[in-house]
Design a protein around this nucleic acid. Sequence first.
DNA 1: GACACCTGGTTCAACTTTTAAACAATAACT
DNA 2: AGTTATTGTTTAAAAGTTGAACCAGGTGTC
Lengths: 171, 171
Amino acid sequence: MTTRWLSPEEQRAWRAYIAASALLEDTLDRQLQQEAGLPHLYYSVLATLSEAPDRRLRMTDLAEVLKITRSRLTYAVARLEKDGAVRREDCTWDKRGSIAVLTDDGMALLERTAPGHVETVRRAVFDHLDREQVEQLERICTGITKALQGDGAEAVTADDLPWRRRSCPSS
Amino acid sequence: MTTRWLSPEEQRAWRAYIAASALLEDTLDRQLQQEAGLPHLYYSVLATLSEAPDRRLRMTDLAEVLKITRSRLTYAVARLEKDGAVRREDCTWDKRGSIAVLTDDGMALLERTAPGHVETVRRAVFDHLDREQVEQLERICTGITKALQGDGAEAVTADDLPWRRRSCPSS
DNA sequence: GACACCTGGTTCAACTTTTAAACAATAACT
DNA sequence: AGTTATTGTTTAAAAGTTGAACCAGGTGTC
């Protein structure tokens, strides 16, 4: 089968994306490293936990939301635990399980550093987007995620989690 | 000053972006590692060189286009040189300079692996975007880049390079 | 031209992260 | 009961990243 190359417009968009994402990730990493002493991924772990019911999430769920491997997450949480921002608890209804819990210290760190982070994100991204573009950005990214997530899977975002199977044996 | 938090729409868009970019970078890395034996960044080095006039670019220019530090680039090019995909040449009109040149082997590698890469990008991104969205994506990303690039700087993309100062002493 | 200062690029050592594979424990299915 | 699948961690190796230090060469000034 002959290759379906990118059209010139697509190429431009793709290059713009590559540049922007590299620059953005770099900026976020530096800003957070500076202010919170954490790389972006680690901050995301805390942020995700902070919004979860009861500030706790099972490792696999957390990994799924963040789109990283469990192995990578184990490493990250180990460090966050050492920093005192996260604590691990055993899962009572599934003895294999391990639950990451945001500590008060972690919450405090988050609250202390969130404003700076949000400001960075805003300046980098949202300050120059109109309503329409914000909406498009979401749609575009959701589409990408869906495409990459194996088509059978439902979209998994933080919002889905409170009702997910592993969260709690409420049934 | 009170924090300008993200609106719910912005939050959704931001989370969608975080998820998509993590997943995308991961996918590209794996696909390219598999097919070309290179991570995405390294592939981008080759791709950028392949489009430069005479398939060569000064290190600083290359770093600027790719939005990475010179240090990081030195490391990357060192490996690519060891692989035989890139060769370094001395810059004749500026004796400090070092020029990265895409070798024939590098070009061959690129040509061999480009179809698979493009196919991945297409499936992940462009297959589910319409014309309008492609255009928006470019605009959004260009805006981000501009915002992060220090406002004084002109946008630097591969397209600008043939005419850039360091490329050639044609003046 | 001598001086100071700026740039291009590399090197180094420390560190962090990532990966993949293997593993133990537990759950779930048949 | 006996597989098979999942959860989460561990391990060792490799890779990548960083920042600072550094050299060599350019640029500008007086």
